[in-house]
């Protein structure tokens, strides 16, 4: 048995598919691809697969990852080939390799956001403010006020074909997670967002996660 990490993109219509549903999609893909994955051995035996980081409904991503364990000696290339053959439209398997770091070490993520219309000046102005206070729901169901400004690692606003492009790096992972929608909603509550793509994930030292 050996651990395997599968990287994939989730784009297009798949942005409407929830994280929970992607879990089932992956399980069916593994079956159809005849990949001999390790099953848990409890009362309700099921294939062991573990996703890096949930992706919000409506987001696309070019940096998704899932771990599984392989019972036989199927090669990474073979796994990549087989999964690619059964992947739904919008999912591209980009690489298969041995995991190096644990998913719990993921700490930051890059997002590429396209907003319809040219709002670049206003957005720059907004993001340049000394603090951006918003209410954030806590896991326990309460609400606490946080300053988004101090959470933003870096950002860049640009113009793209009459639209506004925001590239932003935010905390992401089990320790702290900032959804870019918090920032967009704080900026304007009826923004027309064309797309939000999670492009890269990093560890706590801002090294690309692998």
């Amino acid at each position: 048995m050996r651990p395997v990490r599968v990287y994939y993109n989730k784009v297009g219509k798949l942005k409407y598919i929830s994280h929970l549903d992607i879990n089932r999609v992956m399980l069916r893909m593994i079956r159809k691809a005849h990949i001999n994955v390790w099953f848990t051995e409890g009362f309700n035996q099921h294939p062991y697969i573990n996703f890096a980081l949930p992706l919000s409904l409506g987001f696309e991503s070019t940096s998704e990852a899932v771990d599984m364990r392989i019972n036989d000696d199927m090669t990474d290339d073979e796994i990549l080939k087989r999964l690619s053959e059964v992947a739904p439209e919008g999912m591209k398997i980009t690489s298969v390799c041995e995991p190096v770091k644990k998913f719990s070490e993921i700490a930051f993520a890059d997002f590429a956001i396209t907003i319809r219309g040219d709002l670049s000046d206003k957005l720059n102005e907004f993001l340049a403010k000394p603090e951006i206070l918003v209410d954030k729901k806590t896991k326990k169901g309460g609400v606490k006020q946080i300053d988004l400004k101090e959470k933003i690692v870096k950002y860049n606003v640009s113009k793209a074909n009459g639209n506004t492009r925001l590239d932003i790096t935010l905390p992401a992972g089990t320790q702290e997670n900032i959804n870019p929608n918090l920032i967009l909603n704080a900026f304007c509550d009826d923004l027309s967002v064309e797309s939000i793509i999670r492009t890269t994930i990093y560890d706590s030292e801002m090294k690309i996660f692998a």
Binding site: K13, Y16, I17, S18, D21, R28, L57, P88, E89, G90
Partner: peptide, 16 residues
């Protein structure tokens, strides 16, 4: 609209 409603996967087709 799809991002404003519950379970948008009901309305997109494209299933395998």
């Amino acid at each position: 609209i799809l991002l404003k409603v519950q379970k948008p996967a009901r309305y997109i087709g494209g299933e395998q």
